[in-house]
Each structure stands twice: as structure tokens, then as C-alpha cells.
Computed example of a mutant assay.
Amino acid sequence: MTAALSSVSSVSFGDVVHVPVHFDDLDAMGMLHNSRYAVLVERAISLWWAERGVSFAGGRPTTPDAFNVVREYGITFNRPVLGTGNVTVHFWLEKLGTSSATYRFRVTSTDGETVYAEGRRVNVRLDPATMRPSPWTDHARTLATTILQPS
């Protein structure tokens, strides 16, 4: 589990990160706005990689693998998040391709009992010079195997 924001609940694969829901994340009805779920997932996954040295510093990627983009994003909303406070993002890799990574995720209550939303996200590593897909490094592959869903 991520050191800075670990969850009390344990997961058998992937990792969990607690992410705060702020007042400005809410819609007029006091619910987490649908567009903010993607932000929470982004923050959780980005934090996980940053704690392992894959991030941006001074506007530049710290490793070639930090230069990646979201290609696909799909989500199913099950129950609304009401108000502010922490939620938990449980995420894992379903598949690691040559230049792509398919994540699955669940946004849950901090005790893991309520699943607010679940979905899928595909990232693609790009070569910054050509902006074309580029293979993940061996370093990223080693890190990624720690959150890869067992077959």
C-alpha cells in the first residue's frame, strides 16, 4: 500500500490510496461531480508512481516512463459520494502491453465497504520527440508487476 496514504483495508492485488474530496469537487447537490472521479483516480495513480520515482520535477519527467497519456477512460457510477472527506481509490493493472497499461479501479469508502464507482483506464507511454507510442522501460515494468492483477 502507498506509504503516505495507506488504507486500513488490505487488498490482495494492486494498491489503495486515500484521496480527499474537497468542497469544490462537489456539484450543486452536494455530491462528488462526475468529472472529479477521473481526477481522484489520476491523483491516486500519479502519487503511487511518484513515490517510486516516476513523476515530473521542474516541469520535466524524472524518467522516460513519466511521459504518458490517457488513451481511454470508462467509468460506472454505483452510488454518489456525498460531501467532503476521504475516499479510497483501489487500482491495479489488468494488462501491461509494450507501450500501454490497462488499469482497473474502484472508488470506495475508506473502509472499502461501499463501491461508489468502478472503471477502466488505458495509458500509453509516448516518445517525447515523436509523440508516438514507445515501449515502457524495464524499470517501469518491474514496478508495474507489483500491481499487476494475478492471472
Rank of each mutant, 00 (worst) to 15 (best):
T108L: 15
F91C: 10
L82A: 12
R132Q: 14
F67S: 06
F23S: 00
G59E: 01
E118A: 15
A101R: 05
M131T: 02
A44D: 12
T108N: 03
V21N: 07
T137G: 01
T2I: 11
E113W: 01
M29P: 10
D25H: 11
H18V: 00
S100A: 12
Y73C: 12
R71M: 09
F105I: 05
Y37I: 15
D111W: 05
E42V: 06
Y116S: 05
G85L: 02
Y73Q: 10
H33R: 11
R36Y: 03
D24R: 10
R125A: 11
V17Y: 13
R104G: 15
L26Q: 08
T2G: 01
E94C: 00
F77W: 09
L82K: 02
S55P: 08
T102W: 10
V115D: 05
T76E: 14
R121C: 11
V115E: 10
S6L: 05
N34S: 15
L93G: 06
V115T: 11
G83I: 12
L47G: 05
W48A: 03
G53Q: 04
F56L: 01
T84F: 01
V107D: 11
W48G: 06
Y116P: 02
Q149D: 01
A44N: 06
V39H: 00
E51P: 12
R120I: 02
Y73E: 00
L96H: 03
P20S: 09
R60P: 00
V69G: 01
N78H: 15
G83N: 11
M29H: 14
P80I: 08
R106T: 07
S151E: 10
T84R: 13
S6N: 14
S109H: 04
Y37R: 01
H22W: 02
S134P: 09
G119S: 13
V89H: 12
G85F: 00
H33L: 00
D15I: 13
V16S: 12
W92S: 14
P64M: 07
R141N: 07
G53W: 02
T63A: 14
F77G: 05
T137V: 06
L32P: 10
Y103P: 04
S10D: 15
R79F: 03
A3N: 10
V54P: 09
T137K: 06
T98L: 15
G59C: 03
G112Q: 02
H139N: 07
R71Y: 04
G30E: 11
R132Y: 03
G97L: 03
T98Q: 04
A66F: 09
R132T: 11
V17N: 14
R120Q: 04
A144K: 05
L82G: 04
T114E: 03
M131E: 09
S7Y: 11
D15K: 00
P64D: 09
H90G: 06
F23Y: 15
L126S: 08
V81N: 07
V41L: 05
N86W: 05
D65Y: 11
H33N: 08
Y37P: 04
P61I: 02
A129K: 10
R104A: 13
P135F: 14
V89P: 13
T130V: 07
R125Y: 03
S12C: 08
G58Q: 01
Y103A: 04
